[in-house]
Amino acid sequence: MESTLVTVLFTGLVVSGLVKLSALGVGWGLARTRLAERWRVYRRALAPGQLRSEAWAAVGVVLCDALLVGLFRYFSGPRMAPFSVPVALLSYAWMFVGFEVWFYVTHRLLHTRRLYRFHSQHHVAQVTEPLTSLSFSLVERLVLMGGGMGMVVLAMQVMPVTQAGVMGYILTNYFLNVVGHSNTEWLPRRFVSSWVGRVFFTPTFHALHHARYQGHYGLFTVVLDRWFGTAFHDYTLVHARAREGQGLVRIGERLSPVPVPEALPATQSESKAA
């Protein structure tokens, strides 16, 4: 039993580490393209020491995830349902929606005065970059991972759950986290005004959270922020600026809509000419 558990933990470490490194590698590569330079949300340098701090935190996150995922697979694996496409899709949907709610609630709590010390590591970055996606304190990571595992355990009480559906969501989570912390707006202007953009996030959405701290607590959707009044009014304007290659240069900068000038009354001569 011990050797089997050790094997599972070691496999978890290798797989978890490789997946995270792959996501970071893609993120770092894209971040250095000309398009990424053009579409920056914040056109500012990183904070001094930010990369070093985030790198050390990332090491702890990789080890923590490997241990938790390995243990969870070892003890819950036998209870997983056999693979089927409908069950895998249902499992994925459950994880996506359930974790979205868990993340919003815990994220707001971690921004309260008493709990913020457990979240402050993530906000070493006012301007984000791909490594920020792994920059968490161990306490916060335990909260996030515990929520995800709790979703699986809860789901197994009421429906079949497949390993493929759960792992599919974990992969989505890793890669979208890198995209969301890229400080690069990859999505076109029309996205945020579409029905899809009224549900799902953009890199601009999360970049504003890091710069402003309060607001935009959602993970990969904007729905709960819209419902609970924590969305920034100038989100679409900042998104448009990033896509135009005119990203913000000040952390506290807020944008206001450009007022449309009122039509002036026609002069007497203009009236006669008409």
Rank of each mutant, 00 (worst) to 15 (best):
V87G: 12
E100K: 03
A55K: 13
M95H: 06
L144I: 10
L90T: 12
R141V: 09
L224R: 03
E262Y: 00
F72T: 08
L264A: 06
W56H: 09
V6T: 03
R250I: 00
V26W: 05
F200E: 12
F205A: 07
G29H: 08
R52M: 06
G146M: 04
E262D: 07
G180S: 15
H111R: 04
P130F: 01
T106E: 04
H107Y: 12
T128H: 07
G229V: 00
S53R: 06
Q50L: 11
E140R: 07
R32K: 10
S76N: 05
L176D: 14
R250K: 12
D225N: 03
Q157L: 12
Q268D: 14
V97K: 08
R43L: 02
F200D: 13
G150W: 05
E100Y: 06
Q268L: 15
E2P: 03
F175E: 07
T33A: 13
F10N: 15
A55P: 10
Y235E: 04
L71E: 00
R226S: 02
L89Y: 04
L21R: 03
R114N: 12
G60Q: 05
R32T: 11
R113W: 07
G147I: 10
T4G: 11
F191R: 09
D225I: 05
D65C: 07
V158A: 15
T230K: 06
V59I: 15
V97M: 01
T11L: 15
Y169D: 13
G245F: 09
R108Y: 11
Y235G: 01
S3I: 14
F228A: 03
E54H: 15
L264E: 11
L51C: 03
H122K: 11
L110Q: 09
